[in-house]
Computed example of a mutant assay.
Amino acid sequence: MIPARLSATSPQARAALTGTGAVVLTGLPVEPGSLAVAAAVLFGSGVRELYPHRTRRSVDGGPLPLHADSFDVVVDVGGRQVRRRHPDEDFVLLQLVEQAPSGGESFVVDAHAFTDSLPADLRAFLTDVDVDLYGRWAGVRGLPATPRVARHVEHTRTGRRITRRTDGAAPLHRDPRSDHVTAMLRRLDEEVARVQPALPRFRLDEGDVLVLDNYRCWHGRDAHTGTRSVHIQTIRTDDAG
């Protein structure tokens, strides 16, 4: 899809986001605070948790494949446990700070529609088989020691569908089906790699904020030359479940 471009103050922005799962907001200052402003404009008091923003800067960056933002990070701040990321953060906001001289075009896919189009056995794997969402990242500083067990396609208690995409997924420890799970994860990667080149591309302007339903849409970008910088913020809303 190519998200609609609307002013951050447009009354149609929330409807566009609800309708397609993605929208580009324009007219905001190029600063991290604009992400919180955009979240407030779109969701108002429905913002439940606002996680710390992060700035990503890449030089001559390679392609960023399709993914959903997902991580599980809890840190100790002065003896208090503070959550910095959540596995089920339901919206992600990304502001382009510095455009690369060439490349860096973005792409988005409706992950619900994509996974529904997959062969029946792969769809069954995504909906029926538990995996460790971050098992391949074991040992990364800050990640919890307890495995995060989930399925790629699940529903919240309020009925909202989540279609996950993380390159950290791995079989559960000592799962007797480990070989099968590994093979199916490889097939999913192959299907994603097959569809990614055909997706329409769009170019963000500096200051644009791409807002994505993180339960529904996967996103990525092409390789670029030169420097490209973005501010990123993930949130949970009252609709997260």
Rank of each mutant, 00 (worst) to 15 (best):
1 M>Q: 04
2 I>T: 15
2 I>L: 11
2 I>D: 03
8 A>D: 04
11 P>Y: 01
24 V>K: 00
27 G>C: 11
30 V>Y: 10
34 S>Q: 06
36 A>T: 02
38 A>W: 13
39 A>K: 04
41 V>Y: 06
41 V>K: 06
43 F>P: 06
45 S>W: 15
45 S>M: 08
45 S>G: 12
47 V>Q: 00
51 Y>S: 05
55 T>L: 00
57 R>T: 15
57 R>Q: 14
58 S>G: 14
59 V>Q: 10
60 D>R: 15
61 G>Q: 05
62 G>S: 03
64 L>I: 07
72 D>L: 00
72 D>Q: 05
73 V>D: 08
74 V>S: 12
74 V>D: 10
77 V>S: 11
77 V>M: 07
81 Q>L: 13
83 R>N: 01
85 R>A: 15
85 R>L: 11
86 H>E: 14
87 P>H: 01
89 E>Q: 04
91 F>T: 07
91 F>V: 14
91 F>W: 14
92 V>Y: 08
94 L>Q: 14
98 E>D: 12
99 Q>L: 09
101 P>V: 03
103 G>V: 11
103 G>N: 10
104 G>A: 14
104 G>Y: 00
105 E>S: 03
106 S>H: 09
109 V>S: 09
111 A>N: 13
112 H>W: 15
113 A>H: 11
118 L>Y: 14
118 L>Q: 05
119 P>N: 09
119 P>T: 11
120 A>E: 10
123 R>V: 15
125 F>L: 09
128 D>R: 02
129 V>F: 12
132 D>I: 11
135 G>P: 02
137 W>T: 08
137 W>K: 10
139 G>T: 13
142 G>L: 11
144 P>S: 00
145 A>K: 14
146 T>N: 06
151 R>N: 15
159 G>N: 10
161 R>M: 02
161 R>K: 01
162 I>R: 12
163 T>A: 07
164 R>Y: 06
167 D>R: 09
172 L>F: 06
174 R>H: 07
177 R>W: 00
179 D>C: 04
179 D>Q: 10
180 H>K: 03
181 V>Q: 08
184 M>P: 03
184 M>N: 06
185 L>Y: 08
186 R>M: 06
187 R>H: 07
187 R>I: 07
188 L>N: 05
193 A>L: 05
194 R>S: 10
200 P>M: 11
205 D>W: 01
206 E>H: 02
206 E>C: 04
209 V>I: 13
209 V>H: 03
210 L>V: 06
211 V>Q: 13
212 L>G: 04
218 W>P: 07
218 W>V: 03
221 R>P: 02
222 D>M: 06
223 A>R: 08
225 T>S: 10
226 G>W: 08
226 G>L: 08
227 T>M: 02
232 I>L: 01
232 I>V: 13
236 R>D: 03
239 D>V: 04
